[in-house]
Amino acid sequence: MDILDILISASFWTAAIRIASPLIFAALGELICERAGVLNLGIEGIMVVGAFAGWLTVYLGGGLWFGVAVAMLSGMAFGLLHATLTVPFGLSQHVVGLGITLLATSLTYYCYRLALPSVTSPPKIEAFQPYEVPFLSDIPLIGEAVFSQTPLTYLAFVLAVVVSITLYRTPLGLAVRAAGENPAAVAAQGLSVTGIRMGAVMVGSGLMAVGGAFLTMSAFNSFFFEMVNGRGWICIALVVFGSWKPGKTLLGAVLFAAFDALQIRVQQTPLGADIPYQIFLMAPYILSILALVIMSRRAQVPAALMVPFNKGER
């Protein structure tokens, strides 16, 4: 059976882990925002900014990790704008988020056209190269699939652990979770709900931008229009799928990516040749919707998600 052959091949799992990496960064970023009580629909545009900022830094001669830092900072800048409008001013998180996505995307495209007025094929950069972890990469199948990835992929997985520990094992994480569940209780402790939420949105937006930067710096090695292509929206679905828990969200991202990698490979089999390619391209979006339907009943939405907090108001 063709599909079975694909599923036990190392290259399939290598691809799945690679496809999952940007989703892990961005979904963790969205998770942090939502855990603090803010829905960040700017994610799609912030990923575009990160993809461009990281790529441009390297293209202009900066180092790779410096590029990642620049991407993160530019994401945080848009996060600050989003947070200022939604947290202290309490504006609609839907409208502001979509506005940020439009602003970030169009500003990026504007800058791209200014930086490179007349290119037909976008220039490539010297991107992150796979790094084979000593000893571990010698394990059959798993070694090739998991331990021969680029450093950014390793960072994505480490980050999931860090976010999980911070959220559940530190006072900071408790404060963030409480800001999303019961902001009045946070304020009663003498902590600033505004400060916590704004910080969470900025950090989360920074991670979304790194997710975008992964696309240009560790996958496609150049920047082109429409490259984020709905990945941000899929990350929002992944956070719901993972019931706002870092571990489950990471698992969701890997499952989703495995499915994505599978559909690309099935397209090339004789079975796939008879089916219009659009069906395969649709599958990830339909899968996300189905996952939302299945998971929504058990999902534990942060109680104060999308509820602005105005101190002193009852």
Partner: peptide, 20 residues
């Protein structure tokens, strides 16, 4: 019926319909 957030589903359906 299921309490699924319509922001995400309507956004994702845009991609599905365009491909269709």
């Amino acid at each position: 019926r299921f309490g699924v957030d319509e922001v995400v589903t309507t956004l994702l359906l845009n991609f599905v319909v365009l491909l269709w």
